[in-house]
Computed example of a mutant assay.
Amino acid sequence: MSGQHADADGLRLLVVGASSGIGHAVAVAAGARGAKVAVAARRIDLLTKLADDIGGSAFELDVEDTGAIKRVLDAAADTLGGLDAVVFTSTVVPFAHIEDTDVATWVHAFSVNTLGANNVLRAALPHLSENGVVLVASSNDVGRPRAGVAAYDASKAALDEILRSWRSEHPELSIIRVGMGPTKDTEILRGADRDLLAQLFESWTEHGQLPAQMSALRDVANTLVSLITATHANPTVVPEVVQLAPRIKKLVD
């Protein structure tokens, strides 16, 4: 490999939430660009295939299990010989009107999206190299919530505040918060009620919250890897908050 395609050469990277969607795509992109990659998520069958495809290592992990997080982070760091970068993309998006969102749903969303990210960062801390980078996937909807995803939006808003606290107490860390925009080919709608989704799509369209086009998954993944490699290579600068949004191209007749 040469040029930009080898810019992650030797980078020791752990992707948490890599069984599908953005996490999976980041692992593939990083591996193609020369990184040594470990992947973690609940669906170990999908992870094992991914690890085989990219020459990486797979670890089964439920980020709601705090004890398992430390064990997996320790094992991944041992396998890779340390961590130069950690990417957290594990996310749950419960679709429900706010009055129908029960306590268990709120707790689950915060346990994965908020506390899961925080606990992965805690467990990664002793293993990060001097110029180590942590990239956490958030949402570009924070502060402008759309109907039907209150638990998701609130959990990501809380995550933003937690990351601010990390930066305040650990200014030496490179922590990148990325607000993810609408992206094709993810599993965000997996298991959702189709009748409810039809109602929500109507609401999002009415309020101008559906883009004409979505970002390509591969482009999003390569952008995230580029953020990591640039930050790792330039340790006096941190792109603390990055927002990704679809680039809407005009259709040619």
Rank of each mutant, 00 (worst) to 15 (best):
S165W: 14
G191T: 12
P94T: 13
G179Y: 03
F110S: 09
A85V: 03
V149N: 07
T186I: 05
P145Y: 05
A151L: 06
T101H: 05
P145V: 04
L189I: 07
V142R: 00
T183S: 01
V120M: 07
D100E: 13
F88Q: 12
A147G: 08
M180K: 08
A151H: 02
V120Y: 04
S111Y: 05
P126Y: 13
V133F: 00
V134N: 02
V136N: 09
L189H: 15
G181M: 04
S165E: 10
G143Q: 03
L121W: 03
L115P: 01
W166C: 05
L189C: 11
R144N: 09
A192S: 13
V103L: 15
S174I: 03
T105A: 14
G179A: 01
R177D: 11
F110V: 08
V149C: 06
L159Q: 13
N118F: 06
E130S: 15
V107M: 14
A85G: 05
A117V: 12
A109P: 01
T183G: 03
A123I: 05
D84H: 11
V112I: 11
S129M: 05
T105V: 08
S155G: 13
V136G: 07
A157L: 01
A158T: 12
E130G: 10
H170K: 14
L159Y: 05
R167W: 13
A154W: 02
N113C: 11
P126W: 09
R190N: 14
T89F: 01
N140T: 00
N131I: 04
E161K: 13
S90T: 14
S138E: 01
N131C: 04
G116A: 11
A137G: 04
F88K: 10
E130P: 01
P182Q: 14
N119G: 08
L135G: 10
R177C: 11
S174A: 15
G116L: 08
A158S: 08
P171S: 13
A109F: 06
T183V: 04
S174Q: 14
H97N: 06
D100L: 03
D84N: 12
D185C: 07
D160A: 08
A85D: 00
